[in-house]
């Protein structure tokens, strides 16, 4: 067990927490937050596993992937928020059709 593995386990925890939230909560904003948290968990695992070289500099390839991933995540979030506002405008509630409104 070393520091990178600690962060990798935290990343897995975040992924599962986000997955749970994505399934359990009905409000779309919460689902968007849950997907973002899942993504952060994946990024954390990738970057943590890149640092397994001990004293040597970490592997730059996962770093590059995570940087593009962060920018894609924010643009996808913006699109998802726009869709959520349209759902609210059409149905009056920011929940998926057919779901209970809690």
């Amino acid at each position: 067990m070393s520091v990178p593995f600690l962060y990798a386990l935290v990343g897995i925890g975040l992924f599962c927490l986000g997955f749970h939230g994505l399934i359990v909560y009905d409000h779309l904003l919460r689902k968007i937050l849950a997907i973002n948290i899942m993504g952060s968990g994946v990024f954390l695992v990738l970057v943590a596993l890149a640092k397994r070289g001990g004293e040597a500099a970490p592997d730059p390839v996962p770093h590059a992937m995570v940087i593009t991933g962060i920018v894609v995540a924010v643009s996808a979030t913006a699109l998802a928020l726009g869709l959520m506002l349209k759902v609210q405008a059409a149905t009056g509630h920011a929940v998926l059709p057919g779901k209970s409104r809690d």
């Binding site: 520091v3 990178p4 962060y7 935290v10 990024f43 954390l44 970057v47 943590a48 890149a50 640092k51 500099a57 970490p58 770093h63 590059a64 995570v66 940087i67 962060i70 920018v71 924010v74």
Partner: peptide, 17 residues
Amino acid sequence: AWVRLEAPDVALAEAAI
């Protein structure tokens, strides 16, 4: 966390976004 994992590039992107 990114800083602790020696990923300052990722930390910069995360800080900005």
